[in-house]
Write a protein that binds this DNA or RNA. Structure first.
Length: 569
RNA sequence: CGGGGUGUAGCGCAGCUUGGUAGCGCGUCUGGUUUGGGACCAGAAAGUCGCAGGUUCGAAUCCUGUCACCCCGACCA
């Protein structure tokens, strides 16, 4: 491709709307343009990257024994009513109505369609396992789209669904996908980790997420260096801590005056009570039932753990009016002593002695409160977010924390959808049984953004070779100089003949402009054809990720580039 | 939806407090000089000041409403 006819409108300045680096660079380098919040056009360079990502995904999916198909984006309401999700999915689903007033959704996911399809066409154990996938746009009316492609309302996703005879079959399909996903991100040369995840609203009992590591990631992951444990913070288990070294004697409770002190920090500052000698009390409403949660003062509640334990549909923090009605004090003065609602206590609190808490009376706290003596727990369970330094639940070594971007997620679904949509098959002895399903997603467009997030410098993007829009850019320093342009064109043609994807920057621009653009759009290899080296029949070859430029004889430049692309140099 | 912020030329911004009919840098176009890391000179085009009402002799500026976008929180590939 010649740069003079390539559509890549680059920007010198950072658009004000972009906050994170991948969003800024994809805009500046002319890869994407916004149409509305969370909805983007992909320009030619982006399309090439997306196609490369898709092709790696396709190859690995096909290798794992699955087949590609394509399902409709517009999905009839009746299917969603059958699965029960028309009412459950909520505002995140785009809904529309046709001229006959029939309801449809823009597909946020495809369990309903594929299960219906497979139910209609697959009836025998002989046809299983069946793994089907597609790559297409998905629609989710996110509460808050953000960070460019990172959280869009329209995005490109690969979604695969597995159908097996039984749970052993599902385990096998799951393992295949687990391995295929590792292969995919490894081939893209992304720095990623696989973490245990909560399976959330989709249902099912086992789930892993594939996280590209980046400081801007929206997820916190905890991992162990002594063993291979890694989990999303939502999932990471906290062990019962060791008994404290010197066990304190229980002291009598006393009520102290704490006027104007509402936060844990107020008590630290005002009375010198350290955070780990305080508990915080949170009041929640779970499907209309009030409850309280007790955590050590410096910990955060993990709502997912609470929700999973309670097995409830809706969980909200109680509002201050409700809190006041129940215990006669505001948020800052809550405490477990004397509370008349079920109290769920985090494991760690069982190791605390003589702690302080709100007295359920504005302006007062208790000190020397103890679990068991002063209040009783409805349940003692793991409720807090794990943090860096916590013991690994597998080997007890201290955990480390990192930020990650979730680019893939695999789930075991079980029979949730095959039951709801009646997708059954006949076993060898004629029994009818529901198929056992799994689903497996990759955010294709998000992966592109994540790759940029992880591979950039002050000059722009540094595409990993396997997903770069072009491998090489050839720049004649001065395209008006006949011999430079001719030499550059010659190299360009020879590279193309070797199936190397190459841009010839034949634009009548100053060298600086062309260098800046080449760096910005992140082409991995740059060949500069300049007057000095040309006299020696040489050109300059520079890798985007390296500081050094090397002089290469024109005769061998194609071989050199070929070796760089194959990762041999 | 709650909290915060922003809408003025393709991009980045000033002007708004104190109303007087729109400006700067970059980009674009023309001509010339340049040509190894976002050149220089001269000239030019380009704006319903987000939209709708209102106040006023007069509104980018004041008031009301509304829309869009961005950031923080609850969601997820």
């Amino acid at each position: 491709m010649k740069a003079s006819s390539l559509f890549f409108p680059t920007l010198r300045e950072v658009p004000a709307e972009a906050e994170i680096i991948s969003h800024q660079l994809l805009l500046r380098a002319g890869f994407i343009r916004k149409t509305s919040a969370g909805v983007y056009s992909y320009l030619p360079l982006a399309v090439r990257v997306l196609q490369k990502i898709e092709n790696i995904v396709r190859e690995e999916m096909d290798r794992a024994g699955s087949q590609e198909l394509l399902m409709p984006i517009i999905q009839p309401k009746e299917l969603w009513e059958k699965s029960g999700r028309w009412s459950v999915y909520g505002d995140e689903m785009f809904r529309l109505t046709d001229r006959h007033n029939r309801g449809f959704s823009l597909g946020p996911t495809h369990e309903e369609i594929i299960t219906t399809l497979v139910d209609a066409e697959v009836h025998s154990y002989r046809d299983l396992p069946l793994l089907l996938y597609q790559i297409q746009n998905k629609y989710r009316d996110e509460i808050r789209p953000r960070f460019g492609l990172m959280r869009g309302r329209e995005f490109i996703m690969k979604d695969l669904y597995s159908f097996d005879q039984d749970y052993e079959g599902l385990d096998l399909s799951y393992q295949k996908m687990y391995a295929a996903y590792r292969a995919i991100y490894t081939r893209m040369k992304l720095n990623f980790r696989v973490v245990e995840a909560d399976s959330g609203a989709i249902g099912g009992n086992e789930s892993h997420e594939y996280m590209v590591l980046a400081d801007s990631g929206e997820c916190t992951i905890l991992y162990c260096e002594s063993c291979d444990y890694a989990a999303n913070v939502e999932k990471a288990e906290c062990l019962m801590p060791e008994e404290s070294v010197a066990e304190e004697e229980l002291k009598p409770v006393s009520k102290i005056s704490t006027p104007g002190m509402h936060t844990i920090q107020d008590l630290v500052n005002g009375l010198g009570i350290p955070e780990h000698k305080q508990v915080k009390t949170l009041m929640y409403i779970a499907d209309d039932n009030l409850l309280a949660v007790i955590l050590r003062g410096d910990r955060e509640l993990n709502e997912i753990k609470l929700k999973n334990y309670l097995n409830c549909n809706n969980l909200f923090m109680a509002d201050e009016a409700t809190v006041r009605e129940i215990c006669g004090a505001g948020f800052g003065s809550l405490g477990p002593r004397g509370l008349k609602i079920p109290i769920y206590v985090d494991l760690e609190v069982t190791r605390m002695r003589n702690f302080s808490c709100g007295a359920n009376e504005d302006g007062y706290h208790y000190i020397n409160v103890n679990l068991g003596r002063d209040f009783t727990a409805e349940a003692i369970i793991d409720l807090r977010n794990a943090v860096e330094g916590d013991a690994c639940p597998v080997c007890s070594a201290p955990l480390h924390a990192l930020r990650g971007i979730e680019v893939g997620h695999i789930f075991k679904l079980g029979t949730k959808y095959s039951d709801a949509l009646n997708a059954c098959y006949r076993t060898a002895n004629g029994e009818e049984r529901p198929m056992v399903m799994g689903c497996y997603g990759i955010g294709i467009s998000r992966t592109m953004a994540a790759a940029v997030e992880q591979n950039n410098d002050n000059d722009g993007i540094i595409w990993p070779m396997p997903i770069a829009p072009y491998h090489v850019i050839v720049i004649p320093v001065n395209a008006k100089k006949e011999e430079q342009l001719r030499a550059a064109e010659d190299i360009y043609e020879k590279l193309k003949a070797r199936d190397i994807e190459v841009i010839l920057d034949d634009r009548d621009e100053r060298a600086g402009v062309k260098f800046k653009d080449a760096d910005l759009i992140g082409i991995p290899v740059k060949i500069t054809v300049g007057p000095k080296s040309l006299q020696e029949n040489q050109v300059e070859v520079k890798k985007r990720w390296s500081e050094t430029t090397e002089l290469v004889a024109i005769d061998s430049v194609v071989d050199t580039v070929y070796a760089i692309i194959r990762g041999e140099m």
